[in-house]
Nucleic acid binder design. Structure first.
Lengths: 337, 337
DNA sequence: CTTAGCACTCTCTCTCCCCAAGTGCTAGAT
DNA sequence: ATCTAGCACTTGGGGAGAGAGAGTGCTAAG
């Protein structure tokens, strides 16, 4: 048995299946690829590949389809991430220019990635937890109403209006704000609660009650939901890839909305040496994503994830290239702003 | 021809079609409803309804299906918005309690509405334009970096970090902020730009350049994209209602993401006397929503819209009731906070 | 105005059957 | 040893055809 050729056959099967969207047989294979051997030989190789669980036949008289395991071997050993075309690079650059705040940048990025790949794109908000506190602001709106703003060096700004139990004049508020800021500035957002707790001991008794209220609100802000939020784009592509294939998109849409499953998955996906992580089909360890693959990578300082989600039958090299390129641009932009 | 009975037949057709999801024939009609006449009579009525364009037959030997026009008559003349059950009211109340900021409230609301109706729910952000400026804050982060925060009395908080062309010490910034606030507080957000422009004339020459920069940034903030943003939930329901029906959901998903079409539609939908507006099929005036109906109503002070989007074959009375109830609760909560 | 009856028209489903694709195997060639 | 050619075998897919079922419109009578 010729091992290198066998892998070449696997590659050909994956590529043809992705391209033609139908099971591929031995004859079509020798016609479309210059393998230098006859279809009978290919059949032997295919039988071996099937024994190893890399490909499978939907029916006896149909061609072969790659299994999740087959895609895995393809991604790990057979694919080279090809660089993007100049046009694509240009598109990335021009689309990401002119964005102002973080929301806008993420929004544009995820749309861009979706268009580049014709897949659903997802991006995770930079996680406050690993970022550091850049500024805390407290603004009195009314005697008992305070607007709290927490700014992280990741560019994230969280704000919230809280109502406190006693009146706060301008000086008291300024003093408290200053105390909080002194204790927390430059420290990780994740430790905000602990840092603020230390402040309490230094305060005069009459300030403690209201200070506790404010600190609690700031703590909530730091742990706020946004840090664990995902922005998506291109859900319509799901329906399209499905029209010819029978994958029920309803559970996938649910997973996208629930976000919990996806967040777990993204955080578990450690980037491989080539900088992009891939979870194929059952590897996602989520029932709703059984027929779905996720290609993702980290971006920015705190390694939040960005990636795409699509049918297991996808063009992995192209997708990986797009995800990696977009993540790099995004990192660059976030670092620059 | 018996006019009242003819309308009764239309109602029966709509109700049965919504319920059983298949064309309804004259025989089934007399079996399921106590119409007091024979199927032959019903057939006459149905022929008349078809002449008026209220129902249509997919093919000769199938039953009839309501047309958009038929649904319109049903909604306008034949349906009564029935109140929600106690359980549903309870669900609304408990789900909306415990929400903190505006984002959270809208998020919960839209999910709630989606679950109640088993449809895609959409909610438009309260429009800053009609709200009034409650507070403007400017915080120096670095000598040339300023965090601007704009708070509207609708509860919306917009913020952005801007870099200005010259150093700003604390006193100068505080002065400018105070000037801006004095000119704009209590005024409509939509007029913020004009109000700030007036401030410019009162400033010392050396302040004008930087003040103009800040004012421009605030103006952008006021016109910020968020005011024209829609939050959605329950897109998975689209796929489900489609599995048995052949409506291509891809364009609908696109419309949901594009938002532009939907925003136009929502703003054009004037609430009818019963408090809920309905756009049926082609009435949406959007190709992508040809087989889709939108049920929406305004909420809050500035009449931002909340509603659902689903197949034209939907339970209009129940949906309208849910939309109306949720909108009321939402208005109440926003007024209270 | 309503009803009963009836002829007619469709679609849907089932079955049958053949075709095309593709495989695995065996025997021979290199 | 490995590859190739040939061939028998399997099987899903597609088309044809028939029958059933549903529903209609029409007519004539109540």
């Amino acid at each position: 048995m010729n091992e290198p050729r066998k892998l070449e056959v696997l590659r050909a099967i994956v590529e043809d299946y992705v391209h033609y969207r139908e099971p591929v047989g031995s004859k079509a294979l020798v016609e479309r690829h210059r393998l230098g051997v006859s279809s009978a030989t290919i059949r032997n190789d295919m039988a071996a590949l099937e024994d190893e669980g890399l490909i499978a036949a939907p029916h006896t008289s149909a061609g072969r389809v790659p299994t999740d395991k087959g895609y895995r071997v393809f991604v790990d050993q057979l694919s080279t991430v090809r660089p993007l075309s100049a046009a694509e690079r240009h598109a990335i650059q021009s689309l990401l220019e002119g964005a102002d705040d973080l929301d806008d940048v993420l929004e544009r990025t995820v749309r861009l990635l979706s268009h580049l790949t014709n897949q659903v794109a997802v991006v995770q908000y930079p996680q406050l937890g690993r970022a550091r506190v850049r500024h805390i602001e407290a603004v009195g709106l009314a005697p008992r109403q305070v607007l709290l703003v927490l700014i992280a060096d990741s560019g994230t700004v969280e704000q919230r209006v809280v109502t406190v139990g006693e009146d706060l004049d301008h000086d008291r508020l300024a003093f408290l704000r200053q105390s909080f800021l002194a204790a927390a500035a430059g420290q990780p957002v994740g430790q905000l609660g602990a840092n603020l707790a230390r402040v309490m001991d230094t305060l005069m008794p009459q300030d403690k009650a209201v200070a506790t209220e404010l600190a609690a609100a700031l703590g909530t802000l730091a742990a706020s939901s946004r840090e664990e939020r995902i922005v998506t784009a291109g859900t319509a592509y799901l329906a399209r890839s499905n029209s010819d294939f029978l994958l029920s998109i309803s559970p996938v849409l649910e997973a996208l909305e629930e976000q919990v499953v996806l967040l777990r998955l993204l955080s578990e996906m450690a980037s491989d040496p080539r900088g992009v992580a891939v979870a194929i089909g059952h590897e996602t360890a989520a029932d709703s994503l059984l027929e779905t693959s996720v290609v993702a990578t980290g971006y920015g300082r705190d390694d939040a994830k960005i990636g795409i989600l699509g049918p297991t039958r996808m063009d992995y090299p192209a997708t990986m290239a797009a995800v990696r390129a977009v993540a790099r641009y995004l990192s660059k932009i976030l670092a620059g702003s």
